[in-house]
Design a binder for these strands. Structure first.
Lengths: 234, 234
DNA sequence: GCTGTTTATCGTCAGGCAGACGACTAAGAT
DNA sequence: ATCTTAGTCGTCTGCCTGACGATAAACAGC
Protein backbone atom coordinates (compact mmCIF):
# COMPACT_ATOMS: atom_id res chain seq x y z
CA UNK A 1 0.00 0.00 0.00
CA UNK A 2 1.41 3.24 -1.08
CA UNK A 3 1.16 5.39 2.04
CA UNK A 4 3.13 2.97 4.19
CA UNK A 5 5.62 1.83 1.57
CA UNK A 6 8.88 3.02 2.99
CA UNK A 7 10.52 3.28 -0.40
CA UNK A 8 8.17 6.05 -1.46
CA UNK A 9 7.27 7.86 1.72
CA UNK A 10 6.85 11.60 1.36
CA UNK A 11 9.96 13.30 2.79
CA UNK A 12 9.54 15.99 5.44
CA UNK A 13 11.94 18.29 7.16
CA UNK A 14 11.78 17.99 10.94
CA UNK A 15 12.85 20.81 13.21
CA UNK A 16 12.68 21.67 16.87
CA UNK A 17 11.69 25.12 18.05
CA UNK A 18 12.18 26.36 21.58
CA UNK A 19 9.98 28.53 23.74
CA UNK A 20 12.47 29.62 26.40
CA UNK A 21 10.84 31.53 29.24
CA UNK A 22 12.24 33.30 32.24
CA UNK A 23 11.15 35.98 34.68
CA UNK A 24 12.99 39.31 34.55
CA UNK A 25 11.90 42.58 36.11
CA UNK A 26 8.64 41.13 37.38
CA UNK A 27 7.70 40.14 33.82
CA UNK A 28 7.56 36.92 31.88
CA UNK A 29 10.19 37.07 29.15
CA UNK A 30 10.88 34.87 26.16
CA UNK A 31 14.09 34.30 24.27
CA UNK A 32 14.25 35.17 20.58
CA UNK A 33 17.05 35.16 18.08
CA UNK A 34 17.58 37.24 15.00
CA UNK A 35 17.74 35.04 11.95
CA UNK A 36 21.04 35.19 10.12
CA UNK A 37 19.84 33.27 7.07
CA UNK A 38 16.80 33.25 4.82
CA UNK A 39 13.94 32.74 5.00
CA UNK A 40 12.86 35.60 7.28
CA UNK A 41 16.48 36.80 7.42
CA UNK A 42 16.88 39.59 9.94
CA UNK A 43 13.54 38.86 11.62
CA UNK A 44 13.20 37.64 15.15
CA UNK A 45 12.26 34.03 15.70
CA UNK A 46 12.30 31.32 18.29
CA UNK A 47 15.57 29.44 18.57
CA UNK A 48 15.54 26.10 16.80
CA UNK A 49 16.80 24.11 13.88
CA UNK A 50 16.75 20.86 12.00
CA UNK A 51 16.89 17.57 13.82
CA UNK A 52 19.90 15.49 12.81
CA UNK A 53 19.39 12.06 11.29
CA UNK A 54 20.46 10.06 14.34
CA UNK A 55 19.41 12.41 17.06
CA UNK A 56 16.42 12.16 19.37
CA UNK A 57 13.95 15.03 19.46
CA UNK A 58 14.66 16.10 23.01
CA UNK A 59 18.38 15.81 22.38
CA UNK A 60 18.00 18.10 19.39
CA UNK A 61 16.15 20.61 21.54
CA UNK A 62 18.90 20.55 24.16
CA UNK A 63 21.57 20.93 21.49
CA UNK A 64 19.87 23.89 19.85
CA UNK A 65 19.43 25.54 23.23
CA UNK A 66 23.14 25.23 23.88
CA UNK A 67 24.23 26.19 20.37
CA UNK A 68 22.08 29.21 19.79
CA UNK A 69 21.97 30.70 23.23
CA UNK A 70 24.80 29.35 25.33
CA UNK A 71 22.29 28.38 28.02
CA UNK A 72 24.07 25.10 28.40
CA UNK A 73 24.46 22.89 31.42
CA UNK A 74 22.03 24.89 33.45
CA UNK A 75 19.30 23.67 35.74
CA UNK A 76 16.50 24.30 33.30
CA UNK A 77 13.23 22.49 32.78
CA UNK A 78 12.64 21.14 29.27
CA UNK A 79 9.44 19.48 28.08
CA UNK A 80 7.76 18.84 24.79
CA UNK A 81 5.09 21.41 24.00
CA UNK A 82 3.33 20.49 20.76
CA UNK A 83 4.01 19.85 17.11
CA UNK A 84 3.22 22.21 14.30
CA UNK A 85 3.07 20.94 10.76
CA UNK A 86 0.67 22.94 8.63
CA UNK A 87 1.60 22.81 4.96
CA UNK A 88 3.10 26.15 4.04
CA UNK A 89 4.36 27.11 7.46
CA UNK A 90 7.87 27.08 6.03
CA UNK A 91 8.21 28.65 2.57
CA UNK A 92 11.10 26.38 1.62
CA UNK A 93 9.42 23.02 1.94
CA UNK A 94 7.21 20.88 4.07
CA UNK A 95 8.54 21.12 7.60
CA UNK A 96 7.13 19.67 10.79
CA UNK A 97 8.35 21.41 13.91
CA UNK A 98 8.32 19.86 17.34
CA UNK A 99 8.17 22.69 19.86
CA UNK A 100 9.76 22.41 23.29
CA UNK A 101 9.16 24.53 26.35
CA UNK A 102 12.11 25.60 28.46
CA UNK A 103 11.76 27.29 31.83
CA UNK A 104 14.92 28.88 33.14
CA UNK A 105 15.92 31.11 36.06
CA UNK A 106 16.94 34.65 35.30
CA UNK A 107 20.22 34.37 33.47
CA UNK A 108 22.95 36.61 32.16
CA UNK A 109 22.43 37.95 28.68
CA UNK A 110 22.23 35.15 26.17
CA UNK A 111 25.26 34.59 23.97
CA UNK A 112 24.13 34.11 20.38
CA UNK A 113 25.78 31.33 18.44
CA UNK A 114 25.14 29.02 15.55
CA UNK A 115 22.92 30.62 12.93
CA UNK A 116 21.76 33.41 15.20
CA UNK A 117 22.78 36.97 14.41
CA UNK A 118 21.50 38.10 17.78
CA UNK A 119 19.69 36.85 20.85
CA UNK A 120 17.66 38.69 23.46
CA UNK A 121 14.98 38.46 26.07
CA UNK A 122 11.72 40.28 25.45
CA UNK A 123 8.52 40.46 27.45
CA UNK A 124 6.28 37.66 26.28
CA UNK A 125 3.30 40.00 26.06
CA UNK A 126 5.09 42.25 23.55
CA UNK A 127 6.18 39.33 21.42
CA UNK A 128 2.68 37.94 21.31
CA UNK A 129 1.16 41.28 20.38
CA UNK A 130 3.24 43.68 18.42
CA UNK A 131 6.24 42.05 16.92
CA UNK A 132 5.79 39.59 14.14
CA UNK A 133 7.93 36.58 14.72
CA UNK A 134 9.05 34.48 11.77
CA UNK A 135 7.08 31.42 10.60
CA UNK A 136 4.20 30.56 12.95
CA UNK A 137 6.36 31.28 15.97
CA UNK A 138 3.93 33.74 17.51
CA UNK A 139 1.39 30.99 17.86
CA UNK A 140 3.98 28.56 19.23
CA UNK A 141 5.04 31.16 21.78
CA UNK A 142 1.45 31.69 22.85
CA UNK A 143 0.94 28.01 23.40
CA UNK A 144 4.13 27.83 25.42
CA UNK A 145 3.10 30.73 27.62
CA UNK A 146 -0.31 29.24 28.17
CA UNK A 147 1.24 25.88 29.06
CA UNK A 148 3.51 27.54 31.61
CA UNK A 149 0.60 29.48 33.09
CA UNK A 150 -1.50 26.37 33.43
CA UNK A 151 1.24 24.14 34.74
CA UNK A 152 2.45 26.23 37.65
CA UNK A 153 -1.06 25.94 39.01
CA UNK A 154 -0.78 22.30 39.90
CA UNK A 155 2.94 21.56 39.90
CA UNK A 156 6.11 22.76 41.50
CA UNK A 157 7.33 24.02 38.14
CA UNK A 158 7.38 27.68 39.15
CA UNK A 159 10.54 26.93 41.08
CA UNK A 160 12.25 26.27 37.74
CA UNK A 161 12.19 30.04 37.27
CA UNK A 162 14.06 30.57 40.53
CA UNK A 163 17.71 30.09 41.42
CA UNK A 164 18.54 26.98 43.37
CA UNK A 165 17.91 28.72 46.67
CA UNK A 166 15.05 31.16 46.80
CA UNK A 167 12.63 32.80 49.19
CA UNK A 168 8.89 32.48 49.40
CA UNK A 169 8.60 36.05 48.18
CA UNK A 170 10.73 35.34 45.13
CA UNK A 171 8.57 32.35 44.29
CA UNK A 172 5.47 34.48 44.71
CA UNK A 173 6.85 37.07 42.31
CA UNK A 174 7.25 34.30 39.75
CA UNK A 175 3.57 33.46 39.99
CA UNK A 176 2.68 37.13 39.82
CA UNK A 177 4.80 37.67 36.72
CA UNK A 178 3.61 34.56 34.89
CA UNK A 179 -0.04 35.13 35.68
CA UNK A 180 0.08 38.92 35.62
CA UNK A 181 -1.81 39.23 38.88
CA UNK A 182 -1.06 40.26 42.45
CA UNK A 183 -1.24 37.56 45.10
CA UNK A 184 -1.70 38.01 48.82
CA UNK A 185 1.73 37.44 50.39
CA UNK A 186 0.25 36.00 53.57
CA UNK A 187 -2.03 33.48 51.93
CA UNK A 188 0.67 32.53 49.45
CA UNK A 189 3.12 31.95 52.26
CA UNK A 190 0.64 29.76 54.08
CA UNK A 191 -0.09 27.74 50.97
CA UNK A 192 3.46 26.94 49.86
CA UNK A 193 4.91 26.39 53.31
CA UNK A 194 1.93 24.29 54.31
CA UNK A 195 2.17 21.87 51.40
CA UNK A 196 4.28 18.89 52.50
CA UNK A 197 7.59 18.37 50.67
CA UNK A 198 7.00 21.36 48.44
CA UNK A 199 9.75 23.54 49.92
CA UNK A 200 12.75 22.46 51.96
CA UNK A 201 14.32 25.13 54.19
CA UNK A 202 18.06 25.38 53.72
CA UNK A 203 18.59 27.13 57.03
CA UNK A 204 19.99 30.29 55.48
CA UNK A 205 18.35 33.67 55.09
CA UNK A 206 18.77 36.54 52.69
CA UNK A 207 17.89 40.20 52.46
CA UNK A 208 18.52 40.53 48.73
CA UNK A 209 14.93 41.67 48.23
CA UNK A 210 15.22 44.25 51.00
CA UNK A 211 13.16 44.34 54.15
CA UNK A 212 13.17 41.72 56.81
CA UNK A 213 15.45 38.75 56.15
CA UNK A 214 13.66 35.89 54.45
CA UNK A 215 14.21 32.18 54.84
CA UNK A 216 15.86 30.41 51.93
CA UNK A 217 14.31 27.26 50.48
CA UNK A 218 15.15 24.63 47.93
CA UNK A 219 12.63 22.74 45.78
CA UNK A 220 11.18 19.81 47.67
CA UNK A 221 10.40 16.37 46.36
CA UNK A 222 6.73 17.10 45.71
CA UNK A 223 6.17 17.54 41.98
CA UNK A 224 2.45 18.05 42.14
CA UNK A 225 0.59 20.68 44.08
CA UNK A 226 -2.63 19.29 45.40
CA UNK A 227 -4.93 21.11 45.87
CA UNK A 228 -3.65 23.44 43.15
CA UNK A 229 -2.67 27.04 43.51
CA UNK A 230 -5.71 29.00 42.39
CA UNK A 231 -5.26 31.56 39.68
CA UNK A 232 -7.38 34.66 40.36
CA UNK A 233 -9.85 35.63 37.67
CA UNK A 234 -9.94 39.43 37.40
CA UNK B 1 24.92 26.77 7.77
CA UNK B 2 24.41 23.21 6.88
CA UNK B 3 21.61 22.17 9.21
CA UNK B 4 19.24 24.86 7.97
CA UNK B 5 20.15 24.61 4.32
CA UNK B 6 16.94 23.42 2.78
CA UNK B 7 18.69 21.75 -0.11
CA UNK B 8 20.37 19.25 2.16
CA UNK B 9 17.98 18.79 5.05
CA UNK B 10 17.81 15.26 6.45
CA UNK B 11 14.59 13.64 5.22
CA UNK B 12 12.23 12.10 7.75
CA UNK B 13 9.06 10.12 7.45
CA UNK B 14 6.16 11.69 9.34
CA UNK B 15 3.21 9.65 10.53
CA UNK B 16 0.20 10.13 12.76
CA UNK B 17 -0.82 7.50 15.30
CA UNK B 18 -4.15 7.46 17.06
CA UNK B 19 -5.03 6.58 20.61
CA UNK B 20 -8.78 6.02 20.28
CA UNK B 21 -10.49 5.54 23.62
CA UNK B 22 -14.03 4.66 24.58
CA UNK B 23 -15.86 3.23 27.57
CA UNK B 24 -17.41 -0.21 27.14
CA UNK B 25 -18.68 -2.49 29.89
CA UNK B 26 -17.56 -0.13 32.63
CA UNK B 27 -13.99 -0.28 31.32
CA UNK B 28 -11.74 2.05 29.38
CA UNK B 29 -11.07 0.50 25.97
CA UNK B 30 -8.65 1.38 23.22
CA UNK B 31 -8.83 0.69 19.53
CA UNK B 32 -6.13 -1.39 17.87
CA UNK B 33 -5.71 -2.73 14.39
CA UNK B 34 -3.91 -5.79 13.14
CA UNK B 35 -1.15 -4.80 10.78
CA UNK B 36 -1.58 -6.15 7.28
CA UNK B 37 1.91 -5.21 6.11
CA UNK B 38 5.44 -5.41 7.42
CA UNK B 39 7.00 -4.36 9.65
CA UNK B 40 5.25 -6.01 12.60
CA UNK B 41 2.87 -7.73 10.15
CA UNK B 42 0.13 -9.55 12.02
CA UNK B 43 0.80 -7.70 15.25
CA UNK B 44 -1.63 -5.31 16.88
CA UNK B 45 -0.86 -1.63 16.69
CA UNK B 46 -2.47 1.75 17.02
CA UNK B 47 -4.21 2.99 13.89
CA UNK B 48 -2.16 5.48 11.92
CA UNK B 49 -0.18 6.11 8.80
CA UNK B 50 1.96 8.49 6.83
CA UNK B 51 1.02 12.12 6.49
CA UNK B 52 0.51 13.14 2.89
CA UNK B 53 2.64 15.90 1.39
CA UNK B 54 -0.06 18.56 1.34
CA UNK B 55 -2.09 17.51 4.31
CA UNK B 56 -2.19 19.06 7.78
CA UNK B 57 -1.37 16.89 10.76
CA UNK B 58 -4.83 16.97 12.29
CA UNK B 59 -6.38 16.34 8.89
CA UNK B 60 -4.17 13.30 8.52
CA UNK B 61 -5.32 12.03 11.90
CA UNK B 62 -8.96 12.46 10.95
CA UNK B 63 -8.40 10.73 7.62
CA UNK B 64 -6.65 7.75 9.19
CA UNK B 65 -9.42 7.45 11.73
CA UNK B 66 -11.99 7.28 8.99
CA UNK B 67 -9.98 5.01 6.71
CA UNK B 68 -8.84 2.43 9.17
CA UNK B 69 -11.82 2.22 11.45
CA UNK B 70 -14.86 3.69 9.74
CA UNK B 71 -15.43 5.91 12.75
CA UNK B 72 -16.17 8.75 10.42
CA UNK B 73 -18.39 11.77 10.84
CA UNK B 74 -18.99 11.06 14.47
CA UNK B 75 -19.05 13.47 17.36
CA UNK B 76 -15.62 12.56 18.64
CA UNK B 77 -13.03 14.64 20.39
CA UNK B 78 -9.64 14.80 18.69
CA UNK B 79 -6.56 16.51 20.12
CA UNK B 80 -2.86 16.30 19.65
CA UNK B 81 -1.18 14.15 22.26
CA UNK B 82 2.59 14.20 21.79
CA UNK B 83 5.26 13.47 19.22
CA UNK B 84 7.55 10.47 19.29
CA UNK B 85 10.70 10.47 17.24
CA UNK B 86 13.42 8.35 18.79
CA UNK B 87 15.86 7.07 16.20
CA UNK B 88 15.15 3.40 15.66
CA UNK B 89 11.50 3.44 16.67
CA UNK B 90 10.67 2.34 13.13
CA UNK B 91 12.96 -0.34 11.68
CA UNK B 92 12.52 0.93 8.14
CA UNK B 93 13.84 4.44 8.51
CA UNK B 94 13.75 7.54 10.61
CA UNK B 95 10.11 8.26 11.36
CA UNK B 96 8.61 10.93 13.56
CA UNK B 97 5.09 10.14 14.69
CA UNK B 98 2.63 12.74 15.87
CA UNK B 99 0.18 11.00 18.20
CA UNK B 100 -3.43 12.13 18.51
CA UNK B 101 -5.93 11.32 21.20
CA UNK B 102 -9.49 10.50 20.23
CA UNK B 103 -12.32 10.15 22.73
CA UNK B 104 -15.46 8.54 21.38
CA UNK B 105 -18.76 7.31 22.75
CA UNK B 106 -19.40 3.60 22.76
CA UNK B 107 -19.71 2.63 19.13
CA UNK B 108 -20.63 -0.36 17.04
CA UNK B 109 -17.79 -2.71 16.19
CA UNK B 110 -15.15 -0.91 14.16
CA UNK B 111 -14.96 -1.69 10.46
CA UNK B 112 -11.37 -2.26 9.46
CA UNK B 113 -10.22 -0.66 6.24
CA UNK B 114 -7.12 0.63 4.55
CA UNK B 115 -4.06 -1.34 5.59
CA UNK B 116 -5.73 -2.93 8.60
CA UNK B 117 -6.34 -6.68 8.60
CA UNK B 118 -8.56 -6.33 11.65
CA UNK B 119 -9.74 -3.85 14.21
CA UNK B 120 -11.03 -4.29 17.72
CA UNK B 121 -11.58 -2.71 21.08
CA UNK B 122 -9.56 -4.00 24.02
CA UNK B 123 -9.40 -2.91 27.63
CA UNK B 124 -6.66 -0.32 27.92
CA UNK B 125 -5.24 -2.02 30.98
CA UNK B 126 -4.65 -5.27 29.07
CA UNK B 127 -3.01 -3.49 26.17
CA UNK B 128 -0.67 -1.62 28.45
CA UNK B 129 0.32 -4.75 30.34
CA UNK B 130 0.28 -8.01 28.52
CA UNK B 131 0.07 -7.58 24.81
CA UNK B 132 3.01 -6.12 22.99
CA UNK B 133 1.90 -3.53 20.53
CA UNK B 134 4.02 -2.78 17.49
CA UNK B 135 6.63 0.00 17.48
CA UNK B 136 6.53 2.12 20.64
CA UNK B 137 2.76 2.09 20.63
CA UNK B 138 2.45 0.76 24.17
CA UNK B 139 4.10 3.89 25.46
CA UNK B 140 1.98 6.11 23.23
CA UNK B 141 -1.13 4.39 24.52
CA UNK B 142 -0.06 4.91 28.11
CA UNK B 143 0.46 8.60 27.54
CA UNK B 144 -2.94 8.85 25.91
CA UNK B 145 -4.66 7.11 28.79
CA UNK B 146 -2.89 9.30 31.29
CA UNK B 147 -3.88 12.41 29.35
CA UNK B 148 -7.51 11.33 29.35
CA UNK B 149 -7.40 10.58 33.07
CA UNK B 150 -5.90 13.95 33.85
CA UNK B 151 -8.09 15.95 31.55
CA UNK B 152 -11.50 14.81 32.71
CA UNK B 153 -10.54 16.19 36.11
CA UNK B 154 -10.75 19.79 35.08
CA UNK B 155 -12.71 19.79 31.84
CA UNK B 156 -16.02 18.66 30.48
CA UNK B 157 -14.25 16.13 28.29
CA UNK B 158 -15.75 13.10 29.98
CA UNK B 159 -18.96 13.86 28.14
CA UNK B 160 -17.12 13.02 24.91
CA UNK B 161 -17.41 9.38 25.99
CA UNK B 162 -21.19 9.68 26.27
CA UNK B 163 -23.88 9.78 23.61
CA UNK B 164 -25.34 13.16 22.84
CA UNK B 165 -27.94 12.82 25.55
CA UNK B 166 -26.89 11.14 28.76
CA UNK B 167 -27.74 10.89 32.43
CA UNK B 168 -25.73 11.93 35.43
CA UNK B 169 -25.26 8.26 36.28
CA UNK B 170 -23.88 7.49 32.84
CA UNK B 171 -21.44 10.33 33.13
CA UNK B 172 -20.41 9.08 36.55
CA UNK B 173 -19.75 5.62 35.15
CA UNK B 174 -17.40 7.21 32.63
CA UNK B 175 -15.34 8.74 35.41
CA UNK B 176 -15.39 5.46 37.29
CA UNK B 177 -14.21 3.51 34.25
CA UNK B 178 -11.50 5.96 33.25
CA UNK B 179 -10.16 6.36 36.77
CA UNK B 180 -10.89 2.84 37.92
CA UNK B 181 -12.50 4.00 41.14
CA UNK B 182 -15.97 4.17 42.64
CA UNK B 183 -17.50 7.59 43.16
CA UNK B 184 -20.29 8.54 45.50
CA UNK B 185 -23.39 8.99 43.33
CA UNK B 186 -24.83 11.70 45.57
CA UNK B 187 -21.74 13.86 45.75
CA UNK B 188 -21.11 13.40 42.04
CA UNK B 189 -24.65 14.44 41.24
CA UNK B 190 -24.30 17.53 43.40
CA UNK B 191 -21.00 18.46 41.78
CA UNK B 192 -21.98 18.18 38.13
CA UNK B 193 -25.47 19.61 38.45
CA UNK B 194 -24.18 22.42 40.63
CA UNK B 195 -21.55 23.62 38.17
CA UNK B 196 -23.09 26.35 36.01
CA UNK B 197 -23.39 25.60 32.29
CA UNK B 198 -21.82 22.18 32.68
CA UNK B 199 -24.97 20.19 31.95
CA UNK B 200 -28.10 21.34 30.16
CA UNK B 201 -31.27 19.37 30.89
CA UNK B 202 -33.07 18.29 27.74
CA UNK B 203 -36.35 17.72 29.52
CA UNK B 204 -36.52 14.02 28.74
CA UNK B 205 -35.86 11.09 31.00
CA UNK B 206 -34.72 7.53 30.47
CA UNK B 207 -34.70 4.24 32.34
CA UNK B 208 -32.13 2.54 30.12
CA UNK B 209 -29.91 1.98 33.13
CA UNK B 210 -32.78 0.48 35.15
CA UNK B 211 -34.13 1.87 38.39
CA UNK B 212 -35.79 5.18 38.78
CA UNK B 213 -36.03 7.29 35.62
CA UNK B 214 -33.11 9.65 35.23
CA UNK B 215 -33.04 13.10 33.70
CA UNK B 216 -31.33 13.43 30.36
CA UNK B 217 -28.69 16.12 29.81
CA UNK B 218 -26.62 17.52 27.01
CA UNK B 219 -23.12 18.99 27.32
CA UNK B 220 -23.28 22.58 28.43
CA UNK B 221 -21.15 25.45 27.24
CA UNK B 222 -18.67 25.22 30.12
CA UNK B 223 -15.48 23.65 28.89
CA UNK B 224 -13.60 23.89 32.14
CA UNK B 225 -14.58 22.46 35.47
CA UNK B 226 -13.57 24.80 38.24
CA UNK B 227 -12.94 23.69 40.91
CA UNK B 228 -11.93 20.38 39.34
CA UNK B 229 -13.44 17.01 39.97
CA UNK B 230 -11.20 15.37 42.53
CA UNK B 231 -9.75 11.98 41.70
CA UNK B 232 -9.64 9.74 44.77
CA UNK B 233 -6.21 8.43 45.73
CA UNK B 234 -6.28 4.74 46.67
C1' DG C 1 -50.76 -6.22 44.25
C1' DC C 2 -46.83 -6.55 47.33
C1' DT C 3 -42.00 -6.74 48.19
C1' DG C 4 -37.29 -6.50 47.27
C1' DT C 5 -33.82 -4.48 44.15
C1' DT C 6 -31.92 -0.93 41.54
C1' DT C 7 -30.93 3.67 40.35
C1' DA C 8 -31.80 8.64 40.97
C1' DT C 9 -32.14 12.66 43.75
C1' DC C 10 -32.41 15.66 47.91
C1' DG C 11 -30.59 16.89 52.51
C1' DT C 12 -27.50 17.28 56.54
C1' DC C 13 -23.29 17.79 58.89
C1' DA C 14 -18.36 18.24 59.94
C1' DG C 15 -13.72 19.29 58.29
C1' DG C 16 -10.48 21.50 55.17
C1' DC C 17 -9.01 25.17 52.52
C1' DA C 18 -8.99 29.85 50.48
C1' DG C 19 -9.80 34.89 50.55
C1' DA C 20 -9.70 39.01 53.33
C1' DC C 21 -7.21 41.28 56.44
C1' DG C 22 -4.99 42.58 61.28
C1' DA C 23 -0.69 42.41 63.75
C1' DC C 24 4.01 41.95 64.58
C1' DT C 25 9.12 41.43 63.14
C1' DA C 26 13.51 42.74 61.29
C1' DA C 27 16.30 44.64 58.12
C1' DG C 28 17.93 49.13 55.30
C1' DA C 29 17.12 54.21 54.14
C1' DT C 30 16.71 59.08 55.54
C1' DA D 1 14.93 57.85 65.66
C1' DT D 2 11.65 57.19 62.28
C1' DC D 3 10.07 55.55 57.86
C1' DT D 4 9.79 52.07 54.50
C1' DT D 5 9.97 47.53 52.84
C1' DA D 6 9.35 42.69 53.09
C1' DG D 7 8.46 38.58 55.72
C1' DT D 8 5.76 35.77 58.95
C1' DC D 9 2.02 34.40 62.13
C1' DG D 10 -3.05 34.53 63.28
C1' DT D 11 -8.06 35.00 62.90
C1' DC D 12 -12.47 34.75 60.81
C1' DT D 13 -15.83 33.59 57.39
C1' DG D 14 -17.64 31.25 53.55
C1' DC D 15 -17.39 27.56 50.13
C1' DC D 16 -16.60 22.97 48.85
C1' DT D 17 -15.98 18.09 49.70
C1' DG D 18 -16.53 13.56 51.78
C1' DA D 19 -19.52 10.65 54.45
C1' DC D 20 -23.84 9.17 54.77
C1' DG D 21 -29.19 9.19 55.87
C1' DA D 22 -33.58 9.41 53.53
C1' DT D 23 -36.91 9.45 49.89
C1' DA D 24 -38.55 8.53 45.02
C1' DA D 25 -39.65 5.88 41.02
C1' DA D 26 -39.00 2.35 38.03
C1' DC D 27 -38.72 -3.14 37.36
C1' DA D 28 -38.65 -8.29 38.66
C1' DG D 29 -40.64 -11.96 40.84
C1' DC D 30 -43.91 -14.01 43.72
Amino acid sequence: MSPTDASQFPPFGVTVDLVVLTVRDHTLNALTIRRGEPPFQGQWALPGGFVRPDEGLEAAAARELAEETGLDQLPVHLEQLATFGDPGRDPRMRVVSVAYLVLAPDLPAPRPGGDAAGARWSPAAELADGSRLAFDHTRILEEGVERARAKIEYSSLAAAFCPEEFTVGELRRVYEAVWGVALDPRNFHRKVTGTPDFLVPTGGTTTRQGGRPAQLFRRGSAEKLNPPMLRPEP
